[in-house]
Design a protein around this nucleic acid. Structure first.
Lengths: 341, 341
DNA sequence: TCACCTTGTGCAAACGATTTACTTTTTTTT
DNA sequence: AAAAAAAAGTAAATCGTTTGCACAAGGTGA
């Protein structure tokens, strides 16, 4: 059996309440008593039972991250890991633990969230994505649980969230291609349910429109955030009579697939097809050729979002949407004139 | 205030104990009562308080993963994510949650573990690495907490763990280079404190010895599991009078750095320097050239280790060491005769 | 009919902390 | 030196469950 607060109290010749106050550094406790009790805690190797503590304090010092749908698939995308790195950094700094949970479908996800929230297992949570008409967001608002979104809610304006200006980001990326003289620019996109996808699509079409360039529906392919998606998209998009000569790709990992697909079809990059993508994961600079990518400050996104949740837990009322700046990192994959190494 | 078991009891006109028994599907409860109580639970949106539950049951359905030292750095290596994917898959399957925690140095790590274990916050845990004379392992054995290691303990024989046969893996990798006619084979290694590093080093030297090839100390460079490590290693290793013509690299990410370093120095791969590395992360096939890598079944490693912990929680006594098979995946980076695409 | 199961339920004591409201002791003020 | 105020500590209630034991009612075998 573990050593409890009573054991410490008995050995120190004081009441449990006193020990509790010593732990909490309560001012009512004399220097001398405090010292003695602490010594005994040390001696007995006492550590407070966190469950008992949570039960009475209604607090757990734990934040949950909900892993969407097929967590396994999702986690194949390094973007999320970089995000989690940021989250973890902020949470450990603040002395919070991170709980990862999920479900295998939307229904199960909601059940998990309900279990954790109603069950009092967590103090707040973080959603790593934002899709339209999400029942989880609805639930969390009703329960008034501190939570923040990475991305933005398509349903509610005032959900605390951390996001990029994805419209502008895609606008910049597309304009970069246009500046390189590209005229036939396609888009390999993600699930259209996601806000991020919709925003980037909008920036893309805005740039095309302003430049007076055509947006052909056959140049736009939808997929998942997976390598295979990009890979498969190439077969279809390049087989049409007049294929694009440049592609905006929703995500680096997808772009890796695009690269692989194009290589197999015998296209050279960037000479035949230029590529720009998003997220700028570490490996974007290691492919051949290195990929031009919009750095969205992924780590910052996670770090800031956690900070937001932590603030909300401290009763700070937040309904803000915070924007993390992006930055186009130009590499070989998008350049018209290239001198190969 | 949340709805408690008492609220349900009152509304159903039964005692809290009865409600508790309904939840647990106790056989002594009548069909009729059970039905009525369940109906009311549904109606009130009742969810049991997990903290109270844990307090009395001394169980949390949570497994912790301890992130070593500078978690931030560590997480730059994709190997760990693949590991965590496996862990997560197993845990969610079994209805367990995953808690991630860590510290910024060995001392803090131990404190975190102590807090979680003594504080009763977790049912078991998983260590993602194994270094020599680790105080955490020592602590966990004393406390008799269910835990498993990925890798193997250098201090104790009987620590439940899941590992590869790293000696054999490195032996195979090195022999592959030898079979390609390589005579001057170097090794870019990881922290020598880790069992994995030591084992691979051994397999490497064994293969060289058997083939009657020299092992020059100046061909062996130690580093971290980081891209920079591999990158920096190249400057020193290639500047010597008789540099190696082939390299065994401890990890794919490090190999990425190696590739980058060699490219900058003007070496061609594999014509000038052949490369073999370990872990076979998804991106190993996307670099230019694609990297020959030993697939160690990373996902399996995580999956199996979690399973082991779960079994131990179910009182199954485990002191076994389980070996996950490895497999050399040959790609361009190691081949002597190459026809470029 | 009686002693004895079986079945269904309730009471109350844990689990290990925190916290409110008191009590006791010491110090200060007048 | 008495009264008031401050300091230090305690007892007991509470958080929301589970569970051992008691008990009532109905059924069974002799």
């Amino acid at each position: 059996m573990n050593v409890t607060i009573k054991d410490v109290a008995k050995k120190a010749g004081v009441s449990p309440s006193t020990v509790s106050r010593v732990i909490a550094d309560h001012p009512r406790i004399s220097k001398e008593t405090s010292r003695r009790v602490k010594e005994i805690m040390e001696e007995l190797g006492y550590h407070p039972n966190l469950m008992a503590k949570s039960l009475v304090s209604r607090t757990t010092r734990t934040i949950a991250v909900i892993l969407p749908k097929p967590a396994e698939e999702l986690l194949l995308n390094f973007f999320f890991y970089e995000l989690i790195r940021g989250v973890l950094a902020q949470l450990t700094r603040a002395g919070y633990d991170l709980l990862m949970a999920g479900g295998s479908n939307e229904q199960e996800e909601l059940e998990t969230v309900t279990r954790l929230v109603r069950g009092g297992r967590i103090d707040g949570l973080l959603l790593l994505y934002s899709r339209s008409s999400d029942p989880i967001i609805h639930f969390l608002r009703n329960e008034k649980v501190p939570f923040a979104l990475i991305g933005r809610s398509l349903d509610y304006e005032d959900v605390p969230s951390v996001d990029n200006d994805n419209v502008q980001a895609a606008y910049d990326a597309t304009n970069h291609l246009i500046a390189q003289g590209q005229k036939r620019i396609g888009f390999v996109t993600g699930p259209t349910k996601l806000a991020m996808t919709q925003d980037r699509m909008m920036g893309y079409s805005k740039a095309l429109a302003e430049a007076g360039l055509p947006l052909k529906q056959s140049w736009v392919v939808e997929g998942e955030f997976l390598l295979e998606s990009g890979y498969r998209a190439m077969a279809s998009i390049m087989s049409q009579p007049e294929p694009p000569t440049a592609l905006v790709v929703i995500d680096d990992v997808v772009a890796f697939g695009v690269l692989k697909g194009l290589a197999e079809l015998g296209y050279r990059i960037p000479q035949d097809i230029a590529i720009v993508s998003f997220n700028n994961i570490a490996l974007a600079e290691l492919t051949m050729p290195p990929i031009t990518s919009v750095d969205v400050g992924t780590y910052q996104l996670g770090y800031t979002a956690s900070q937001m949740v932590l603030r909300m837990i401290q009763q700070v009322d937040i309904t803000a949407r915070q924007i993390i700046p992006h930055r186009l990192v130009v590499r070989e994959s998008s350049l018209r004139t290239v001198s190969h190494v």
